[in-house]
Lab assay of single mutants.
Amino acid sequence: GSPLAQQIKNIHSFIHQAKAAGRMDEVRTLQENLHQLMHEYFQQ
């Protein structure tokens, strides 16, 4: 897949890990990143 698709997959797993660790501030930051990446992805 594209590097962007790979990045989106990575962030999904980072979010999963951050949630499991209870780091909600990190989850929020990652979700904002994910949102931006998704936006770029669909602009392609």
Rank of each mutant, 00 (worst) to 15 (best):
L4T: 05
L37R: 02
G1M: 10
G22E: 03
V27R: 01
G1T: 13
Q7N: 04
H12S: 05
E32T: 07
Q31I: 14
P3I: 13
L30E: 01
L30A: 05
L37A: 03
I8D: 00
G22L: 03
Q43E: 12
R28W: 04
A18W: 02
Q7C: 09
Q43P: 08
Q17P: 00
E32A: 10
A18H: 03
T29Y: 08
I8K: 00
A20I: 12
D25V: 05
Q31A: 09
M24P: 05
Q36C: 06
D25S: 07
K19M: 14
H35E: 09
A21R: 07
H35T: 08
Q44G: 10
A21E: 11
Q6E: 14
N10F: 06
K19V: 09
H16W: 06
T29P: 02
M38G: 01
Q6P: 03
N10Q: 14
K19F: 06
Q36V: 10
Q44I: 11
R23M: 08
Q7K: 09
E40R: 06
Q43I: 08
L4P: 03
F42R: 07
A21D: 09
F42M: 11
Q36W: 08
G1D: 14
Y41K: 03
Q17W: 07
Q44M: 10
I11P: 00
Q44V: 10
H12E: 12
I8S: 00
D25Q: 08
S13I: 14
N10G: 04
L37W: 02
A20Q: 11
M38N: 02
Q31M: 13
H16N: 14
E32Y: 06
S13K: 14
V27M: 06
H39S: 07
F42E: 09
T29K: 14
S13P: 00
L30C: 08
Q36N: 10
P3A: 15
R23I: 02
H12N: 10
S2L: 14
A20C: 13
I8M: 04
G22T: 02
T29D: 08
Q6I: 08
Q6F: 02
E40Y: 05
A18T: 02
G22A: 03
I15Y: 02
Y41M: 06
L4M: 06
S13Y: 12
H39Y: 08
I15W: 01
H39P: 01
Q17N: 08
